[in-house]
Write a protein that binds this DNA or RNA. Structure first.
Length: 498
RNA sequence: GGCGCGUUCGUCUAGGGGUCUAGGACGCCGGCCUCUCACGCCGGUAACACGGGUUCGAAUCCCGUACGCGCUACCA
């Protein structure tokens, strides 16, 4: 198995392994991400998109976006738009598309009719109900129903008379009778025996193509070289391979990614918590963090790096380090990852991602420098942009409402109000109003009063932010400024005496 | 039921026959830093699903069992 050979061995990236490189060594790598428009982008899909992105970038290939909207009922333009937005937001790029599968209907039909004409497919006259009945019947006897040519539940003369009467028919693909083997980039060699093959449907009796017909047709026409998709398609792969072959096309290389599970160890879904890119976005997760986290969920660079930019991930990416077992999505670790980006990204970047959250928290951008300074002070203290905005909001309050429970211990300190008034007097005069001077004044006052500096620092923090913990106090005072500091101090003194 | 895939700390993972008294990360616990919180730093907790082989030696190779997941549609 090629993928088991590490180091100097043949790999996808060094195309010396014939199994892994069905195409000419110099033919360009073409991958595609083919979501169905369900109204949101699932994180499992997002991860698939990321690996496609990474591989295309790594190999200088082409990434294609194709919307599998053949199920008309749940497809519309807005949903397609939603997927594009989500991909763009998370940082996945594509070079071609989006193609809409529904717009390629003629082509799917053409190829299906070609197969029919060539005798690689045939007409089948059973109705879905009849097939269901047959399945149920065999089920009872402990057998499995598999549709192969000549094994119809219908009598031969019945089929003939339906055909003569021009009855509607489905078009079924004639599956080969040899085993189908392939080397999956993630799982190694996989084999399916002909005993389990079904002559599956290419065209429904209403003439519409099925998913299998459409995907393979599109993958051929789009010259896709590597199909990276979810494990749920592994069992469909023999069907697809047979179609590629009968259609005279080169079979692409497959990579089937394991599922992403929720905390409940079931496939991640809305029930098991946030499951879509949009949800994380609205929670205030940074796109870089989600991209990074998802890339690491099922892949690792082989060393101990974890926080990695897209560029670094591209440089480090190899399909041979893709994992083959399902992974549980861990929101805690995502939060940590996000915090990493919150504290290291350029402030301007944080600011632009935070803007909608800031607005939602009622924070205006009247003074961009003030906003930036506040965000900079708080960025290491928030795990999400939503938290950040919440924390920042108090820095924009005209007057703060103090929580009696939090201020109880200050109110029981007899001299505190008096001390704070003295501090306020010093702060009114200090020049310049910067943290060094502010600290000097406070410590000098503490010494004169014969109290510990903390005895003043903590109540001042409460006065200015309404919280018992937060950024270093003198940074806060400097930021808040002379005027607001005086106002908050006065309010707090009143609160203490009230 | 059939077929396919999987199983290392709670979670993400490293591991490719001896270097494994199993490494890293998240979480958790403790400490340092410190005006508090957070960041950061230091330390601790915790795992090879089970049973058989093969081998001088197995987390690693083989077989089986258990469990989980996927597919088994005129869904995609």
């Amino acid at each position: 198995m090629c993928r088991r050979t590490r180091g100097s061995g043949p790999t996808l990236e060094s195309p010396r392994c014939p199994h892994l490189h069905p195409l000419m060594p110099d033919s360009p790598v073409r991958v595609r991400f083919a979501p169905s428009p369900t109204g949101f982008l699932h994180v499992g899909g997002a991860r698939t998109a990321i690996y496609n992105d990474l591989l295309a970038q790594k190999l200088g290939g082409v990434n294609i976006l194709r919307i599998e909207d053949t199920d008309r009922r749940r497809s519309d333009e807005a949903m397609t738009r939603q997927i594009e937005d989500a991909l763009r937001w998370i940082g996945v790029e594509w070079d071609e598309g989006p193609y809409l599968q529904s717009e390629r209907l003629d082509r799917h039909l053409e190829r299906a009719h070609q197969l029919l004409a060539e005798g690689r497919a045939y007409r089948a006259y059973e109705t879905p109900d009849e097939l269901d009945a047959e399945r149920a019947r065999l089920q009872k006897v402990g057998e499995t129903f598999r549709y192969r040519e000549g094994r119809s539940p219908l009598a031969a003369d019945e089929i003939a008379s339906r055909a003569d009467a021009g009855a509607p028919f489905a078009v079924r693909f004639r599956m080969p009778s040899e085993p189908i083997r392939f080397v999956d980039l993630v799982r190694g060699e996989v084999e399916f025996l002909p005993e389990v093959f079904d002559d599956f449907i290419l065209l429904r009796s209403d003439g519409s193509p099925t998913y299998h017909m459409s995907v393979v047709t599109d993958d051929i026409d789009m010259a896709v070289t590597h199909v990276i998709r979810g494990e749920d398609h592994l069992s469909n792969t023999p069907k697809h391979i047979a179609l590629f072959e009968r259609l005279g096309a080169t079979v692409p290389t497959f990579a089937h990614l394991p599922m992403i599970l929720g905390q409940n160890r079931k496939r991640l879904s809305k029930r098991s918590g946030a499951a879509s890119v949009e949800e994380f976005r609205s929670q205030g997760i940074l796109p870089q963090a989600l991209y990074n986290y998802l890339a690491l969920l099922g892949w690792n660079p082989g060393d101990e790096r974890e926080v990695m930019s897209r560029e670094t991930l591209v440089e480090a990416f190899t399909t041979e380090r893709l994992n083959d077992s399902a992974a549980v999505f861990d929101p805690e670790k995502l939060a940590w990852m996000n915090a990493q980006y919150m504290s290291t990204l350029d402030l301007s970047e944080i600011l632009s991602h935070a803007a909608p959250f800031l607005t939602a928290a009622g924070i205006g951008v009247a003074d961009p420098d003030y906003l930036a300074a506040a965000v900079d002070l708080l960025r290491t203290r928030a795990k999400t942009l939503a938290e950040l905005s919440e924390l920042a909001a108090t820095y924009f309050e005209e007057n703060l409402a103090y929580d009696p429970e939090l201020t109880a211990k200050f109110r029981s300190q007899e001299d505190l109000a008096e001390h704070l008034e003295q501090l306020a007097a010093r702060y009114a005069a200090v020049e310049p109003f910067d943290k060094e001077g502010l600290e000097r004044e406070l410590r000098a006052l503490a010494e004169a009063l014969e109290v510990k500096a903390g005895q003043l620092i903590h109540p001042v923090r409460m006065a200015l932010t309404g919280a018992k913990a937060g950024p270093p106090l003198f940074d806060v005072v400097e930021l808040v400024g002379r005027e607001a500091t005086a106002r908050h101090l006065a309010n707090f003194v009143a609160h203490l005496r009230g």
